[in-house]
């Protein structure tokens, strides 16, 4: 694990999947040769969303569900920054669901790492949008009735250009996927499965370990195949890059952003004067 990005005391439970994801992210940034000041890590609210607190890069810890709007606007304002969102399944797919939908459409060049433990940790054990049917929690004593959301097929159907799944228990593989995701030019989502040792007694480390397998010979350019793979769940769970397609990202729509980032461009006094005089 790289020490360049520092080590802080965390508020996570011992054995939490977040540790492995944080370590993987530090290794990834190191492998990509990124200095702390070149990276901005954005989180919402939740256990996973505390990650910006525990890494020595630029950080923004915002509101519950609202990591994506902050992150994409920061990227638009200064596209020289590597902008990475680390936040949970509740934050990304529940409270932030509307932003998830529309930022796939917007396709700003950021990376979205969802720490998906299929449960709410910070608020102590409520079901999340990805909790399985029948999952009994203190708040769903008769089991979850609501169908779980599939973030991967959702992202695919909305036109995402980089869709992947990883597992916190396969760290080397996770680091590889993280590098690919960060290097992808556009919105990249990686749904990272992780156990919640305190509140999810169903989807445990062993539960995931028994099921995940690394994709082999998968053509990630084939969207139909991608849908097929993204739908495999329960008995076995494939991890890896599920879909990847090069496409123009948001900032490519603006000619003036090709020269330099927005923050380095001023609206000239002459332009403003002309715009005022249009009202004469």
């Amino acid at each position: 694990m790289s020490t360049k990005y520092a080590t802080y005391e965390t508020a996570w439970c011992p054995g939490c999947g977040n540790f492995a994801i944080l370590d993987a992210l530090k290794d990834t940034l190191n492998k990509l040769n990124l200095s702390p000041h070149q990276v901005l890590v954005v989180g919402g609210i939740g256990q996973a969303a505390k990650l910006p607190q525990y890494i020595n890069t630029n950080g923004f810890e915002g509101l519950h569900g609202r990591a994506l709007p902050v992150a994409i606007a920061a990227k638009i304002a200064n596209h020289n920054l590597k902008v990475i969102v680390n936040t949970g399944d509740g934050d990304s797919y529940g409270e932030g669901g509307n932003h998830f939908i529309h930022n796939i459409r917007r396709n700003v060049d950021i990376t979205h790492f969802v720490h998906d433990n299929q449960i709410y940790g910070l608020t102590k054990g409520q079901s999340s949008p990805t909790s399985g049917l029948g999952h009994v929690t203190d708040f769903t004593p008769n089991g979850v009735f609501n169908k779980p959301l599939n973030p991967l097929t959702m992202a695919l159907s909305l036109g995402a250009g980089f869709v992947a799944r990883a597992f916190s228990g396969e760290k080397d593989h996770l680091v590889e996927i993280m590098q690919e995701a960060i290097n992808y030019k556009g919105y990249a989502i990686v749904d990272i499965l992780q156990p919640c040792v305190s509140f999810n007694k169903v989807n445990t480390f062993a539960w995931y370990k028994d099921r995940v397998y690394k994709l082999k010979d998968h053509d990630y350019k084939d969207k139909v195949k991608a849908f097929e793979v993204a739908n495999i769940w329960d008995e076995e769970i494939p991890i890896g890059i599920i879909y990847k397609e090069e496409m123009p990202s948001y900032t490519d729509n603006f000619g003036f952003l090709k020269e330099k980032p927005l923050i380095e461009q001023d609206t000239s006094k002459e332009t403003v004067k002309k715009l005022i005089e249009d009202f004469i």
């Binding site: 915002g62 709007p69 902050v70 994409i72 606007a73 304002a77 200064n78 920054l81 927005l262 923050i263």
Partner: peptide
């Protein structure tokens, strides 16, 4: 508002 905050936070 969160977008405006994000943009402002990096300096525009």
């Amino acid at each position: 508002i969160n977008m405006a905050i994000g943009a402002a936070s990096v300096g525009v």
